[in-house]
């Protein structure tokens, strides 16, 4: 039957069209649990605050370590200390950068 053949052809074509788009699939990754062991702030590179205002359903602090991320409970003491430590470090870094640029401009 010609009609059945057409139908099959359409089905196969649409399968092909759709299957070409399946390459770069990515969903938002979320913290679902917290790490139990406290961590020192020394190896940390930074942090991200995960809120429930977006796709994620729990609140968390994501610490960035070399090559990995660690999910921390925002209410835990060590997390708050880690965040404070990183903020302090950032403040100092910007101060140093500002100081050096100022020194450069005055010397120039």
């Amino acid at each position: 039957m010609a009609c059945r053949k057409d139908f099959l052809l359409t089905a196969l074509l649409s399968l092909l069209v759709l299957s070409t788009f399946i390459d770069n699939t990515q969903s938002a990754s979320c913290c679902l649990r917290y790490v139990r062991r406290p961590r020192s702030c020394t190896p940390m590179l930074g942090y991200t605050i995960q809120t429930i205002n977006h796709a994620c359903d729990i609140e968390a602090i994501i610490f960035h370590l070399p090559g990995r991320f660690v999910c921390a409970n925002p209410k835990a003491d060590w997390t708050q200390r880690g965040v404070a430590c990183l903020d302090e470090r950032r403040r100092k870094t910007t101060e140093i950068i500002e100081a050096t640029t100022q020194a450069n401009t005055t010397s120039a």
């Binding site: 399968l15 759709l18 969903s27 990754s29 913290c31 062991r37 995960q50 991320f69």
Partner: peptide, 22 residues
């Protein structure tokens, strides 16, 4: 428990790749 990393649903993605288009 030592490294709770953000999850990215790999298994579900592979299911979605089959279910989604086909």
């Amino acid at each position: 428990y030592n490294y709770e990393e953000p999850c990215s649903h790999h298994k579900n993605q592979s299911v979605e790749r089959v279910v989604g288009p086909y």
